[in-house]
Simulated scan of single mutants.
Amino acid sequence: MASRSKVTETLRQQVVQMKAKGMTISAIAREVGRSKSVISRMLHLYNTTNSFKSHKKAGRPRKTNAREDRIIRRISMSNRFNTATGIARQFSIEQGKDLSRHTVSRRLRTVGLKAHSAVTKPLISRKNQKARLAFAEEHVVWTEEKWSKVHFSDESKFNLFGSDGKHYVRRQTGERLNPKCVKKSVKGGGGSVMVWGMFSATGVGPFIELHGRVNANVYQNLLRQHAVPSLRSSPNQPAVFMQDNAPCHTAKRVKQYLETENIKIMKWPAQSPDLNPKENLWKILGDKVMAKKPTTVTELWKRLKEEWTRITPEQCERLVMSCGRRCAEVIQSNGLYTSY
């Protein structure tokens, strides 16, 4: 059988002559060692153009070869937040060849590196990772009865206006929570109204507007007036109080006050908002309030109070009972990021 090399004009001429002698396409294919579909295309070309020359291919020639495609991928993988324009610029510096951002984008899409909005997660150090893993391993076995005794508290800022803060990153399928593809954040940021709230599996608790800087003294007064009375009136005793590791929460005077009041504190790992269902409650509250489109800070606070009271005990219970699954995900990720 003939070698399957490039189809030449001589071969096309030979095929046409065989067909003119009455040979079938199958017989010609066997004779020249080509498939029947190739023989059919040769004959079709001759019948439509009356020529043995192949037609000129449409479109511009490809800008990059296989080696250059690998270089583009390597540049992208070295910095997942690099834009197509930035990659094209770096490629030009390294290879002395100009490419458009559109060419770069096409090459990256071909290898599965599509641009996505980056997930924003807190920066997790090795120390944080170990603490998160230890917490998850201790609490993943907790029963619903134990979780029902926990009262989750937190502060949050709600913006009257603001951008969605999206950042785009190139990642492959299954890399949504890859640390290299996650936009790290630190706690804080702007906002128009700052609030503190508490909830448990039985429903929402106190909800307070905060003014100015919240130091240890302000926070202790908040606990005395709102948190402690709510904890003592809880139907699920002994109540457990959850707070994160903000400086005002961990101040010496605050710790001493809670010890004096015999309040049981849940030790919380730093940089772990994904373990706190209160973050999801803030999202539910924020979405409901923003749907009302408040235009002033006064109206924003009014809407926040209204929507807080409309959060149902069933919603609260579902969020609290998700804590076991959250712990399981932390264990699965070895202390790193979860889908929460």
Rank of each mutant, 00 (worst) to 15 (best):
F207C: 10
T202M: 07
A291I: 08
L304N: 03
I208A: 06
G335A: 06
G174W: 09
K127P: 00
C248T: 12
M194L: 01
S153E: 08
Q17L: 15
E94D: 13
E138R: 14
I311A: 02
S125W: 05
R73Y: 04
R4E: 14
H116E: 00
L43R: 01
G112F: 00
E9H: 04
I331H: 05
R326H: 06
V330D: 03
A20Y: 11
S153T: 15
L11N: 04
S192D: 14
S78D: 05
T296H: 03
M194Y: 00
C316G: 08
Y168N: 00
S54Y: 04
Q95W: 05
A115Q: 10
L160V: 08
G324F: 02
A216Q: 10
L11S: 09
P269K: 05
E306W: 05
R253S: 09
G59N: 01
P238E: 13
G174Q: 08
T120S: 10
R318K: 15
C316I: 09
G197M: 00
V150W: 02
M198A: 11
L231C: 10
E306I: 10
N217I: 15
S272L: 03
L258I: 09
P229M: 09
R106N: 05
K36G: 13
K264D: 12
R74V: 11
V119Q: 00
G212D: 03
Q172R: 14
K184Y: 06
Q90A: 11
Y168A: 00
N178I: 12
N178C: 13
M194Q: 02
N50Y: 07
T103R: 01
E155Y: 07
V228Y: 01
K63E: 07
F241E: 09
E306H: 06
T85Y: 07
G96C: 03
R303I: 11
F52I: 12
L304W: 05
W142I: 09
G197S: 04
L11E: 15
P179H: 05
T83N: 07
A84C: 15
H151L: 15
R170C: 02
G286V: 09
S148E: 12
G96N: 02
T295P: 01
L281S: 00
L43H: 03
R60N: 06
P294A: 07
M77C: 11
I311Y: 00
S192I: 05
E137I: 13
Y219R: 12
T312N: 04
F91L: 09
L99F: 02
W282Q: 02
W142Y: 14
S163A: 14
V193Y: 02
F207I: 12
M242Q: 15
Q243C: 07
H55F: 02
V182S: 03
R109C: 13
K267W: 04
A115S: 15
S272C: 07
N50P: 04
P238K: 12
V218A: 10
M321W: 09
A27E: 15
R12A: 06
